[in-house]
Design a protein around this nucleic acid. Structure first.
Length: 161
DNA sequence: GCCAACGTTGGC
DNA sequence: GCCAACGTTGGC
């Protein structure tokens, strides 16, 4: 039997990079993550082929807007080595990179976004991390049943696999 | 713009 | 190792 898929939620501010940008680009490095818990998910727990929600944070309204696929293994985040980057980190050694990225590939845009407010109100999503007050982790695991439910809720006819 | 909820840094 | 000060995230 094939290894069980994991599901994720990944946040981006649409002013910086939106679902429309990913639809246009097709495949992009997901980089600039500078939080250890999120880094560990990127490095250790994500598998190539996993599916993830694209979440618009700091948006009006915030919420889930699309689905993407993890399309690479863990790679060093080279922005950490670039002095001119906002994500430069002098403590990241190119011989032993501290920060990790993944390639992600566009899968689908949700016909209807599912807002954070809707998710908080929805009893089917009880316990989902993103609805927890004060949490701010930019990469989060999502339960498989929550993933399927949210795909339908967002108007997808078929659940991506 | 405010501020709650963190995470990080650095003095001790 | 403690913890105060500071910085960031991100909803509101």
């Amino acid at each position: 039997m094939a290894k069980k898929k994991h599901y994720w939620l990944m946040k981006s501010e649409p002013d910086a990079y939106s679902i429309d940008d990913l639809e246009r680009d097709g495949r992009e490095p997901w980089n600039g993550i500078r939080n250890y818990q999120a880094r560990n998910f990127l490095r250790d727990d994500m598998k190539e082929g996993d599916l993830a929600f694209f979440y618009h944070s700091n948006a009006k309204p915030p919420g889930i807007v699309g689905v993407m696929k993890i399309d690479s293994g863990p790679e060093p985040d080279r922005l950490a080595f670039d002095e001119n980057s906002a994500y430069f980190d002098p403590k990241s050694d190119p011989e032993d990179p501290r920060w990790i990225q993944r390639q992600v590939r566009f899968v689908a845009k949700l016909p209807e976004m599912v807002t954070l407010e809707e998710m908080k109100r929805d009893e089917n999503l009880e316990g989902m991390l993103v609805t927890r007050r004060g949490q701010r982790l930019s990469i989060q695991p999502v339960d498989a049943n929550h993933f399927r439910y949210l795909c339908k809720r967002g108007g997808l006819k078929t659940i991506p696999s």
